[in-house]
Design a protein around this nucleic acid. Structure first.
Lengths: 396, 396
DNA sequence: CAACTTTCTCCACTCACAGGACAAAGCCGC
DNA sequence: GCGGCTTTGTCCTGTGAGTGGAGAAAGTTG
């Protein structure tokens, strides 16, 4: 089970690996165009990478008018495990070295069951993926958890919605179990990395990635790198005050953004509205399922229900107001909206855009796209794979 | 007048120059301890720097139990010009290569006079400093302006309080006039760099520097570097909504932070209070001067005036509330408060602290100092000198 | 004055890297 | 099918960066 994956010996090799990861198979000549090295030096480093087995040469490419080139690609046998632990479900995916998803499992789960129970589940899901022939072993695993993480150690710290996880050595424990390198990060940061790698944020160096699910968080990418803050809690915008003297929040304060709009808050408001007889559409759905979720609200809105539309619009206004402040402060080049409530789609986006464009400075909003994430539920696991591949593809 | 200052030839030389700038004179041996180079290579690079004249060897240091070392120091004749253009005044200072202020002038001035008039003034102030024997010429100049700057080009963009400056080629124009390299940045960013270099933020990699003067801005340092945003407007927090449906702001919106608390807003509120007969202290000062400023409010508060104290406290609450949001979002390791209103001192700080510690997450505030800037009015010019020295002390 | 420290210089050796020459392997036109 | 031409990849040599050790220079201490 334990695999001793080789690591690049120097920065050149690391850069070559990342070029191959992000650009796919390439010839030596093409690689030479993308890296600041002479062809001779490049050939030496490629040969060394071939020796380690991290990359392989498979066959000849079609001619482009001259001698045919040898295709160099990352070892197609490399496998990364991407794990995205949410508040109410967990995603586990296997990718190849180019971070393409080969297999993906999703299970409902309550993070409050605690780390031991959750990881038992995660490991069995990983085992199932392995058993289906997708992987013999893993060369690295990235883990996302819904709370702040002391990043260098890979340990959750004081996570509000994850009692029992505080200080649990996630990185160390999983590294033991899986027999491979493991990196841990906040789930929102991973979503941002996912969209940066393969989604709407490709080639954007400074952007915000707002994830609205059970709670609300924001991934911050500055200068191409994730900003995690000094204690790993950067981007925790759920408890910014959105409404003075507003609704009480689980954190003890009042008027927190998360108390006014999030998957949980939206469901609560929808149930209230249904019970007050404000919406037949919502009431009938409540009667049918015994409960309501953001999906029900989205469906009701799509069916033209005015109350559902109001809920979405008001929530979007709240979030938009907070994002407007963050845009003024951070001046990003892009804002990505993702998470469970993206099903609310265009109505939500319109409300957010209205607020941001109205309240932030023209200079900051002049050329600022505000868009939905492109990867949906796979953003987290792709980001997780990206996180660990960045680690594995760096000099030991 | 034109001086062709040499530039370091490589990254090693640049690092050596910065070590000498930040750590003062040093022997070759001491430098060797701080840089990752063998002594032989180090000696080569130091010799080359000596040849260029950027550094000089002056005399022998006291023995530490063996052969006495040669003191290596930055050329004591190097001179940087630091310029901090505020809304209502301008600071010009001359520093040596170690960024120590050798001379400092301050003049009241209205930035709305436009770039031509302002730079005429700045150049005459610089000439006066030169004439007093502090400098023969300048090896670089850093300029701070109270608005967003397209940093690579050194051009102000869409500055709200600086009509006439939009697109003015500050960097190019001043570089021509002064005959030396020039860098331009937002004044708040320079204040942050000043406090980072020589003030309370030494050795802090992630911090916020809130400047409350005529307006309100925030310098953002992430990973040791200033974050300027994609259009150079990052940190422009004056127009974040602090009060829903609050006071009308010059920007067209309502409830902006700046409309509720800033040097200008505080003066306005104090005049109102005096006219309404709420405070005899303020009324008498108003009668005496015909107007009130933040200094009057500070004095009144110091004299025990309840109304003045209330104004400060309420303003601090507003600012604190916004900062609380930024702290949750950015998770800094330090918050510095500076600018013209720092005269309000402890009362202001106490109000800000209360809000931040109450509203932000414990994890983000647990070990978060919120302090006044240490450098006062010199932070800007020191930051300006630091900016240009970083540029001059980097490979050409 | 001998023994020990610290600082600085000199020299030989290694290694990274560039760049050109050249071979291999394809295309195309005649 | 046979030269030109193009592209790809390899080989070889020269250059300069950098290390590490030997040793000289210049101190202190007993």
């Amino acid at each position: 089970m334990r695999r001793m994956t080789a690591r690049p010996a120097n920065a050149h090799q690391a850069k070559l690996l990342r070029l191959l990861r992000d650009g796919g198979p390439n010839s030596r000549a093409q690689l030479g165009d993308q890296i600041d090295l002479s062809r001779s030096k490049l050939a030496v480093e490629v040969d060394r990478l071939l020796e380690t087995g991290l990359v392989v040469a498979d066959g000849l490419a079609a001619s482009r008018g001259g001698r045919r080139s040898h295709n160099i690609r990352l070892n197609p046998g490399l496998r990364f495990l991407g794990v995205d632990i949410g508040a109410t479900s967990v995603d586990v995916a296997v990718t190849n070295a180019e971070l393409e998803i080969l297999g993906h499992l999703n299970q409902p789960m309550d993070v409050r069951e605690g780390p031991v129970a959750v990881f038992e589940r995660v490991l069995s899901m990983a085992a199932k993926l392995r058993a289906s022939g997708l992987a013999e072993g893993f060369d690295g695993a990235g883990i996302g958890v819904p709370g702040p993480v002391r990043f260098p150690e890979g340990v959750p710290v004081a996570p509000p919605i994850m009692p029992g996880w505080d200080g649990f050595p996630v990185r160390e424990a999983l590294s033991q179990e899986l027999g491979c390198p493991v990196m841990v990060d906040n789930d929102v940061n991973l979503m941002a990395m996912g969209e940066q790698h393969a989604g709407v944020a490709r080639s954007v160096g400074d952007f915000l990635c707002v994830k609205i699910g059970t709670g609300i968080g924001c991934g911050i990418v500055a200068g191409g790198d994730v900003h995690r803050g000094v204690t790993g809690s950067a981007g925790d915008i759920g408890h910014i005050q959105a409404v003075p003297d507003g609704r009480p929040c689980a954190c003890g304060n009042r008027g927190c953004l998360e108390a006014h709009f999030s998957g949980a808050a939206l469901a609560r408001d929808a149930v209230e509205a249904a019970q007050q007889g404000l919406s037949e559409e919502l009431a009938s759905r409540l009667a049918a399922n015994g409960t309501l979720t953001a999906v029900d609200v989205a469906a009701a809105a799509a069916a033209g229900d005015a109350t559902a539309l109001d809920l979405i619009r008001e929530g979007g206004n709240r979030v938009g107001q907070v994002i407007a402040g963050l845009v003024s402060f951070f001046n990003p080049g892009l804002v990505v909206i993702g998470g469970g409530v993206t099903g609310l789609g265009h109505n939500l986006l319109a409300a957010i855009r209205t607020q941001v464009y109205r309240q932030s400075l023209p200079l900051a909003t002049g050329n600022l796209p505000i868009v939905l994430g492109e990867l949906g539920p796979t953003a987290g696991v792709i980001g997780a794979a990206r996180l660990i591949s960045d680690h594995v593809f760096s000099p030991a």
